[in-house]
Design a protein around this nucleic acid. Structure first.
Lengths: 204, 204
DNA sequence: TCTTTTAGGTGTACGTCATACGCCTACGAT
DNA sequence: ATCGTAGGCGTATGACGTACACCTAAAAGA
């Protein structure tokens, strides 16, 4: 059989990721990725069916890099879940441009499946089962997805807050006050605090 | 001064919303909206600067319709927040197509500001202040945003679960088990359960 | 070593998108 | 009645995803 492929899916993914890191998600186009790998635009279609599949490759390369081995069992189950959650946050945080892609492609990510398996495993060891376990997994996912997005698209503790902090104190007294205070709370503390709140609510 | 405007921003917003409801977010284009209002494409630019501003109008018409008056004070603060959260979920749920727009335009929505003001007000009455209040507001937002998205883009309790439930039980034992169980948990219970967990974690 | 086969790679072309620009015209103010 | 302004429209441009037809490199068999 003739002419071996000169590109691995992983290479394609990291080329696309490089484009996103350099020019943002809006800069991701077939043409840009083709240039990045030094091929013609249409050559990419020998490796993927369409743009969506390229995006799938990208998030898989980000989510697949997350270490999903369960943390040592000599810690509380809350701490172990915190570790797993922070691993995802760190991986995604290294490439903020991909955040919007996660929602659309999350369900097809093998990496996130492995991660979920680890999380559910810990939840099970913690004594959760049935409906409670379903809800626990689901709201952890919701928090992680939501918090990561908020963090990278105008966080309370980010530049977005600056404008909110200047709000009319008569129209939004509590909100303006909170936003002003928010400037002294960094993103790590915010994320971690919210997660801790959620885990506290899961105590049996 | 000549020639009054023949379109209000609200009319424009609901025209765009009608397009989204009928053809999905992918069907939203300047051309489609122009057709919907019975004007030429370029006429729209007399009312908005660009597509982004149109999207802003759309989410404002959805989020602005949320009743943000604080619920009666004869209930617990958790119940009052639950009511406010469910109002947002209901409004957005009536137009699932706009979900992806919320993340991008949320910070500029006056409606969501009013909503946040109400929520922070209740948190304050509940005795939260300082860092705790910042974190509480923030993680409520993260949960709401995340959960609504998950619900409308392949929920654990939705059709997305069906494929997960068929997972290899050897590779993903806990996850497959949870997904199978998830089919018996409906979206309302899932959403409400997660929110209750979060609020429980906020107890002082 | 030469041919054959087949998939890799390319160039062109099409339809759709947002939108800049310039024209015409309906209409409130004078 | 007229005039100036802003509403509305048609056209054109450049970027996008991608269908299609075409060349060609190179592995396999002779």
């Amino acid at each position: 059989m003739p002419r071996p492929r000169s590109l691995t899916p992983a290479q394609l993914a990291s080329a696309a990721l490089a484009v996103i890191d350099r020019e943002g998600l809006a800069g991701l186009s077939m043409r840009a990725v083709a240039q990045q790998v030094g091929m013609s635009t249409m050559a990419l279609y020998r490796y993927i069916d369409d743009r969506e599949e390229l995006e799938q490759l990208v998030i898989e390369s980000v989510l697949g890099a997350v270490d999903t081995t369960p943390p040592a069992t000599d810690e509380s189950w809350q701490e172990r879940i915190e570790i797993l959650v922070h691993r995802v946050r760190d991986s995604v945080g290294a490439h903020p441009g991909v955040v919007p892609l996660i929602i659309t492609h999350r369900h097809r990510s093998a990496g996130l499946m492995r991660w979920s398996e680890s999380v559910v495993g810990i939840l099970t060891e913690a004594g959760l089962d049935g409906r409670k376990r379903v809800i626990a997994l689901r709201c952890l996912l919701a928090y992680v997805v939501g918090a990561i997005q908020l963090e990278h698209l105008g966080s309370l503790a980010g530049p977005g807050t600056e404008s909110i902090a200047g709000l009319s104190r008569t129209e939004f007294p509590h909100l303006a006050d909170t936003a002003r205070r928010a400037r002294t709370v960094d993103a790590d503390e915010e994320f971690h605090g919210g997660l801790a709140t959620l885990l506290r609510g899961m105590e049996t």
